[in-house]
């Protein structure tokens, strides 16, 4: 494991029942690196990033996040989760709380912040995602793109060092994808360490430091975007790219 790796996966294996979903996965992520993970459905890419914040448990191998090893130790898991933010495909906003309350929830209850301070923080995050006027609305009253941006603000409010994105735009109508990707680009340019699972190759070309292609539970190819898109090593990568880029 190299010294400036903030995330380290070594020989990680996971099974769902008999199905070997992650096979000997090795991955090193440096601070401020932006990684884009792509691959066909069922390749294990979502599972892999969900293992990083322990939403899924790996059975073999080691995962170390910012110096903390992920095991069954609950304290470690909590510490890791405070450092790692996650944005889901289905947004998962809390429908019974307002937008502002969605964002202030964790700072108040986990970081024990006073309410006014938390609300100020929330408004700052809403400015970053460009929807401060929606603060008092409820998730059900917002569009998909707005909801996802609130979800990003909610994660950012905990000041994570690492942000994980699990297909953040896959559930959005086409006209709303751009507003979310713009926010993610801003975030990347601000120096956030990011791992993004996505099909949006335009975004990948703009932002990614490294492309990771997964298929059938294995990392098939890792390369910088120039090489990945123009001259990939593996045939499977070539096949995948041809399917995804030509429509």
């Amino acid at each position: 494991m190299s010294e400036d790796s903030i995330i380290s996966l070594q020989k990680v294996n996971k099974w769902f029942g008999d199905f070997h979903v992650l096979q000997d996965v090795d991955l090193e992520v440096k601070k401020k690196e932006r990684i884009v993970v792509c691959g066909p459905s069922g390749s294990g890419k979502s599972t892999m990033i969900r293992c990083i914040n322990r939403l899924e448990e790996h059975q073999e191998g080691t995962i170390i996040v910012d110096g903390i090893e992920l095991t069954g130790n609950l304290k470690n898991i909590d510490s890791v989760r405070k450092e790692v933010g996650m944005v889901f495909q289905q947004f998962n906003l809390f429908p019974h709380l307002s937008v502002k309350e969605n964002i202030t929830l964790a700072p108040i209850w986990v970081k024990k912040m006073p309410k006014s301070e938390a609300e100020e923080l929330a408004m700052q995050q809403l400015e970053i995602v460009k929807i401060p006027e929606q603060a008092d609305k409820y998730p059900g009253q917002l569009s998909g793109g707005q909801q996802q941006r609130v979800a990003i603000a909610r994660s950012l409010a905990m000041k994570p060092n690492i942000m994980l994105f699990d297909e953040p735009t896959s559930a959005l109508d086409p006209e709303m994808i751009k507003e979310v990707l713009d926010v993610m680009i801003d975030l990347a340019e601000g120096g956030m360490t990011m791992i993004v699972v996505t099909h949006e190759m335009g975004f990948a070309k703009t932002v990614a430091d490294r492309m990771v292609f997964m298929d059938e539970g294995k990392i098939v190819e890792e390369a910088v975007p120039e090489k990945f898109f123009n001259n990939p090593d593996s045939d499977r990568t070539k096949l995948f790219l041809s399917q995804i880029l030509n429509h």
């Binding site: 996650m86 889901f88 809390f94 209850w109 994660s155």
Partner: peptide
């Protein structure tokens, strides 16, 4: 999952 990943116990 969302509340867990925010660090809530």
């Amino acid at each position: 999952e969302a509340s867990g990943s925010l660090g809530l116990k």
